[in-house]
Simulated scan of single mutants.
Amino acid sequence: MSSNPMTGERRSVVITGASRGLGLASATKLYKRGWRVVAAMRSPDTGMKVLRAATGAGDDDPRLVGVALDLTDPSSVTAAAKAIEDAVGAPYGLVHNAGISAAGMVEETPTELWERMFATTIFGPVALTKELLPSMRRAGAGRIVLVSSQGGVRGMPATAPYSAVKGALERWGESMAGEVAPFGIGVTVIVTGTYDTDIITDAGTTDCRDLAGVYARHHQTMDKRGRAAMKLAARSPEKFAEGLAKALDSEKPFVKTAIGPDARMLLIANRVLPSAGLHQMTRLMMGIPRFGAMRSGGSSND
């Protein structure tokens, strides 16, 4: 479904982080389904070549528009919002997909990384949404989609900044949904499972781990188990794109949904198990030593 049910016009969607991974797959899927796609990315000169090759679109195709967007730069956000409205007017869909990943314990991750993580995942997206909401309200229809992850459901060891921003993203979406629903705008929070993209590889992650430091024992076990789990669980980004296309068709004021079997299982476990139980389950799955096992002079047996 690519037409606006209120006007019959072709619907438009803005996707951030559209040059790679889930964003690239989603932009390609929606374009092929007839949407007008505004692909927001840091480097359109290179990213749009990849996207046009994936979609088969020509350089002057009005249904595929590239917009420069650096979510950490307020002036770039303002310029991107103007470019979006100049290209498609009020977008029907606004998909906040862009994000960065990092590995490292809280002690190991620098404050600058936390700041950059929040700027990319929270502050920039909030600013872009604020710029576009007036036109979306006037249009009386639309859907804002926030791409979260399993880390937004449950804080995961060695990814505290990432888990923190995804948790904040979900609380933002829940709050905003109550505000914009009376204007005909819905909000969807998508909890993603594990997908085969750069963000789960060394190439897509800022690695802050000190493999010879006090958390070396954690890292050795967690790295081995994490890579094995990702190899088993990772699905094609196209599977996510199919779920996103369905999410954009929702007419409910607020939806929180999982895309991927591992994400669905976590949402169920989060509803059924107490928080302490989930903590223990996470510890055992990741091979983290038991409470107190690494105290000075304490036993190292798990």
Rank of each mutant, 00 (worst) to 15 (best):
F291D: 13
Y195E: 02
L128V: 06
G151W: 13
S75Y: 01
G34S: 13
D249Q: 10
H219P: 05
A90Y: 02
Q150Y: 13
M136Y: 14
L211F: 02
A160M: 05
R52N: 01
M48G: 00
M285T: 11
D196N: 13
A177E: 07
A263L: 12
A247G: 09
T7R: 06
K130P: 11
A102V: 03
A263T: 08
P261Q: 10
L24R: 11
M176Y: 04
R10M: 12
G142L: 12
L278D: 03
A53M: 08
L146H: 11
A54F: 09
D70A: 02
D262S: 15
G89M: 02
P5D: 03
D73V: 04
W172C: 07
T120Q: 01
E251S: 04
A27R: 07
I288N: 04
E179T: 07
G184V: 09
G167D: 03
A25Y: 09
P110H: 12
G23T: 13
R209D: 00
I288M: 09
G21R: 12
E112A: 02
V50C: 06
M230H: 13
V191I: 13
A39F: 06
G184H: 03
L278K: 06
Q280M: 04
V255W: 01
Q150N: 15
F183Q: 10
A141V: 14
K82P: 03
